[in-house]
């Protein structure tokens, strides 16, 4: 069965790039252009993994979505890979180990998104099929 990846990002072009990359590797891709829609989709469709942009409409919208996902019973266990260009804005590069206390995501992927690294990380964090 096709594994489904939810991409939450307001950059439509980037969503299409990710879609092209992941679909060519056999994944199904659904997308949302804002945090609220992303949360709805996550709850309705329960994707296997979520790619989440940090900065959308609000500067910390991605963080808020991550907190909400971790609170929901249906979404708590979905792996999250956070897409960031935050280092570009702040000089601060996230680290999943150092920052796990305040930001509960599984991985950070700094933009530009390298197709090979994207696919590797998605495969790494996808839960094993039953």
């Amino acid at each position: 069965m096709k594994r489904t990846i939810l991409v939450i990002d307001d950059d439509i072009d980037l969503v299409e790039i990710i879609r092209l990359t992941l679909e060519s590797e056999g994944f199904g891709v659904i997308d949302a252009q804002n945090g609220a829609r992303g949360l709805d989709l996550a709850r309705e469709r329960k994707p296997d993994l979520i790619l989440l942009d940090v900065m959308m409409g609000e500067i910390d919208e991605g963080f808020q979505v991550a907190y909400e996902l971790r609170k929901g019973d249906n979404t708590r266990d979905i792996p999250i890979i956070m897409l960031t260009a935050v280092a570009d804005q702040t000089g601060y590069a996230f680290d999943p180990e150092k920052d796990s206390d305040f930001l509960p995501v599984d991985e950070y992927l700094e933009k530009p998104v390298s197709p090979r690294r994207l696919v590797d990380l998605v495969r790494k964090h996808l839960p094993p099929t039953i």
Binding site: I17, T21, P115
Partner: peptide
């Protein structure tokens, strides 16, 4: 400058990702 660099970087980065994706696929 930070604002401008971010605004310039965003489309460049997206273009880079797009070409890389085309090459990969």
């Amino acid at each position: 400058f930070r604002y401008v660099s971010h605004e310039v970087k965003t489309p460049v980065v997206t273009a880079q990702s797009a070409v890389e994706a085309v090459l990969a696929v």
